[in-house]
């Protein structure tokens, strides 16, 4: 399996990655991990509450005791160097990691009162409440209309054609795509531009009225204009949804989020108001990463 290889240091292609991590650790000699996350990882009445999350890929531990809250209607950005575990952590939030056999998640993860890892929980239902937008736009090879209507159909959210039409229209409007596609709803979604495809995927995600939207580097494959549109959209969406976004672009994290979490080698080093993180981070590791002194 792909992921198994990815975390096996002995695999020939990964010698470089191992070197890099060792190099980083060597450089970090003078910077120490905090005993616990610095800043304000917790909020009152959180939408999602994660405590002592640990993730293993086989023997290899990818996340070490991460605890944080995501507030209602908050945009939380997860940043950190490659391989720091930010995407892995994000994928725990709607059990995307279930699809990886060797991946094991420990700790307490709650969406309001719902234990995310309750064995009785219906994962499909969970993913309707916690939607996800991926790095590469991945519209289904169907029409624009069917892409958006897919979720509501399988979840039985609309009984009549009229209701479905309305859901499709509102979702596309919320995703800022309606005006561009209203005259060609039945042409294939794959025929749209990259930025439009990504907004289509966002429309598809919000069509099932999720409470939380997870975004895994949603703009990394897009040009600056399309990126600006998605960022605008994130601000808009945060009025109705709670959003967690993983991004490699620190400027993007700075622009869109209320709070920023900095991950480093599987640990949550600091979580603070985004303003604080980008002007006066509390921890030296955050400072070093934000200012581009490593990473």
């Amino acid at each position: 399996m792909d992921t198994a290889e990815k975390f096996d240091d002995k695999a020939p292609g990964n010698a470089k990655l191992a070197d890099q991590i060792e190099g980083e650790q060597a450089m970090d000699e003078t910077i120490r991990y905090p005993d616990q996350t610095v800043g304000t990882p917790y909020v009152d009445n959180p939408k999602m509450r994660m405590r002592d999350v640990e993730v293993f890929y086989g023997e290899k531990q990818a996340i070490h005791g991460v605890s944080l809250d995501i507030g209602k209607n908050e945009v939380v950005a997860l940043i950190g160097p490659s391989g720091c575990g930010k995407s892995t952590f994000l994928r725990c939030l709607n059990r995307m990691n279930d699809t990886i056999d060797i991946c094991q998640v420990k700790g307490n993860l709650h969406l309001e009162d719902q234990d995310l890892y309750d064995p009785k929980l219906d994962v499909v239902e969970l993913r309707a409440r916690v939607g996800m937008v991926f790095q590469k736009p991945n519209p289904f090879p169907k029409s624009i209309y069917d892409n958006v209507a897919y979720g509501p159909r399988i979840h039985g959210l609309a009984n009549k054609k009229y209701d479905l039409d309305e859901i499709v229209e509102t979702s596309l409007q919320k995703a800022g795509l309606w005006n561009e596609v209203k005259d060609r709803l039945h042409s294939p979604g794959t025929g749209l531009s990259g930025g439009q495809q990504q907004r289509l995927c966002i429309a598809r995600t919000i069509a099932v009225s999720p409470e939380v939207v997870l975004m895994d580097e949603p703009c990394s494959a897009l040009d600056p204009i399309a990126t600006a549109k998605i960022e605008e959209l994130i601000a808009e969406l945060s009025q109705s949804y709670t959003i967690a976004i993983v991004t490699h672009s620190m400027q993007q994290a700075a622009r869109v989020s209320n709070r920023t979490a900095y991950f480093h080698l599987g640990r949550l080093v600091e979580m603070n108001d985004t303003d604080t993180v980008f002007t006066k981070p509390e921890h030296d590791l955050t400072e070093a990463y934000i200012t581009g002194r490593f990473g």
Binding site: M250, Q251, F278, T279, K280, P281, T286, E287, T291
Partner: peptide, 9 residues
Amino acid sequence: RQPAASDLR
């Protein structure tokens, strides 16, 4: 460079 943190300050 869009400086941040100590560089920005």
